[in-house]
Design a protein around this nucleic acid. Sequence first.
DNA 1: GGGAGTTAGTCTCTGTTGGGAAGTAGGCAC
DNA 2: GTGCCTACTTCCCAACAGAGACTAACTCCC
Lengths: 138, 138
Amino acid sequence: MTMTAAQRRQAEREVFDAYLAACPSRKLLDRISDKWVTLVVCALADGPMRFSALSRHLAGVSQKMLTQTLRTLERDGLVTRQVTPTVPVRVDYELSALGRSLLGPIQHIKDWAESHMPDVSTAQLAYDAAREQDGARA
Amino acid sequence: MTMTAAQRRQAEREVFDAYLAACPSRKLLDRISDKWVTLVVCALADGPMRFSALSRHLAGVSQKMLTQTLRTLERDGLVTRQVTPTVPVRVDYELSALGRSLLGPIQHIKDWAESHMPDVSTAQLAYDAAREQDGARA
DNA sequence: GGGAGTTAGTCTCTGTTGGGAAGTAGGCAC
DNA sequence: GTGCCTACTTCCCAACAGAGACTAACTCCC
């Protein structure tokens, strides 16, 4: 099966639509829409970090989840893993160019969460109060 | 326990840090870092939508997850729920002002996923090929 | 009156996942 | 030897996501 250059360009321009269940971009969205991914990527914003440093920085992350998160980020080409075979081993993680392209968007999400916390708290209190009213009325 | 106005303002200026496990912004980050949240918020970008329309638009979402997602978004004050008691019932969901403030950042994430899909695919192939090499060498 | 159809859910069951804790490798220090 | 260090890996259990059947409430059709 041969392809003209035009056809090849057409295929490469393939449109990904995360609204479609089968589209690979849906899975990618699922992977980057993750608490730990967000925090790891933001933590690596200022340069490379060791496994143990990340572990300390992201309070409450289990070693298992950190390893898993870093592994998938590495596989997706967002971070690079650099092993220095000293004793004990030293492993540095760093954002790749692709990872840095995600940094901006993902930092906005984290910033939004931190800056809009009061609004969300207020909304929750209002919602819960209204629910309680409904409960009492029933 | 009383508070001066100054103390109250101080408390309101409280800084949220998602890196801390106990910080409420960590939980908020976890809630908005969600595949379905991203898709629902983006779907509501162009105006209100009915439950069934959302269900059709987000291919593959289960009714349970859609209900759950909309419920938490409503509680967090990101979407409003408008019930019209016709028969059958009609329920419209719409982004609130707070929800629209999240729309920009979240759309960037979705766009990133859709536009960087080829780069990620390439990285995955490279990673898997390297892993296979390692496996064969062992 | 009886049955089908509509929307927006809820209920139940099961497979996957997240977190905690304990174990591993490889080498240096005592 | 025993312990300690880092960066994992493995195991187990509780929580959660998804599939699919079921419900409420009322309308239309015969």
